[in-house]
Simulated scan of single mutants.
Amino acid sequence: MNSTHRRRPRLGVLIGTFTTAAALAVTGLLATTGSASAAAVPAHAVTGYWQNFDNGATVQELADVPADYDIVAVAFADATATPGAVDFTLDSAGLGGYTEDAFKADIKAKQAAGKSVVISIGGEKGTVSVSDATSAAAFADSVYGLMQEYGFDGVDIDLENGLNSTYMSQALKSLATKAGGDLVLTMAPQTIDMQSTSGEYFKTALAVKDILTVVNMQYYNSGSMLGCDGKVYSQGSVDFLTALACIQLEGGLDPSQVGIGVPASSSAAGGGYVSPSVVNAALDCLTKGTNCGSFKPSKTYPGLRGAMTWSTNWDAASGNAWSSAVGPHVHQL
């Protein structure tokens, strides 16, 4: 797996095979045809969820999301009457008259600035049933339709009410075939979902490892969980972040596919909030072996992807304190 998880033309190979002039000609052709137009997700990236609703956090347009965010997950697409299929409707009224045209233009502007915008499926109350080949096909077709309609770079799987690894994997592989190598695929499982490689969410992540960008597990609304050392850790601590990340890192995911998901403020979740400094300490512990708590991993993972927050709106309500502290730290890893 490469560091971006978005397959790019191997121009270095072309240059080694052809003359420089020929390689430049190929580069120009790629730029013209658009094959190399999508910006790659950075090796160390920050993901933020953008709320398509008003729940008391700051109402935003996509253009308001700070540049510290490399991946913006639009929350959420909803299930339709067709099993497996999803659709998205911009809450223009709830967002102060934000129009679809402006929304689509903002997506393009984010992409022009090197960012990725994906459509998130699920959420706390969202249930999308992908449990057979027919619903898997409906899921892939509908998500690809949204990508074409709005210009999304990919999809985020945030199904908190169960999923079937066999058919979700099938759906995501089908989507990747339709969308091509630049697909951005992110996931946001709950902590319980990633305690064991035998869990359906973990099995799904491993089954689509060749197309997976990052798993940003939600280290909140969780309570206590086991770390990779078999000890119990409580949410809200640096050890909770590092010892649980270790399970994914030792369970088969590439370090570049692991991110730390946390609330942007104490108002953003029922429990598990940690200050940005604790997030940064956990990142240091995992990537460098420094600033650890009582748990210290047996080795370091300098390729760790980064961090995620719920949400850009709650971040804005706190003066963007989370992204302004965690963003630069992630990008300097």
Rank of each mutant, 00 (worst) to 15 (best):
R8A: 15
R8N: 10
L11G: 02
L11D: 05
G16Y: 07
T20F: 12
T20D: 08
V26G: 05
L29M: 11
A39W: 08
H44R: 14
H44S: 00
N52P: 07
V59C: 08
L62C: 08
D70H: 14
V72M: 06
P83W: 05
G84E: 02
L90I: 06
A93F: 04
G94I: 03
F103H: 00
A105P: 02
D106E: 12
K110F: 02
G114M: 11
K115G: 12
V118S: 03
G123S: 10
K125T: 12
V130D: 00
S131D: 12
A136Q: 02
A136N: 01
G145M: 09
D153K: 10
V155A: 09
I157N: 00
D158M: 12
E160K: 06
N161H: 11
N164F: 06
S165A: 13
S169P: 03
Q170M: 13
S174I: 07
A176H: 14
T177C: 04
T177R: 01
D182K: 13
L183G: 05
L185S: 05
S196Y: 12
S196A: 15
T197S: 15
Y201N: 03
F202G: 00
T204H: 00
K209Y: 00
C228S: 15
D229K: 08
D229H: 08
V232W: 06
Y233E: 03
S234V: 11
T242V: 15
D254A: 05
P255W: 02
S256M: 04
G259V: 08
G259E: 11
G261P: 04
A264F: 07
A269S: 12
V279E: 01
L283I: 15
D284T: 03
G289N: 09
N291A: 14
N291G: 01
P297E: 07
Y301S: 00
R305G: 00
T312W: 03
Q332W: 03
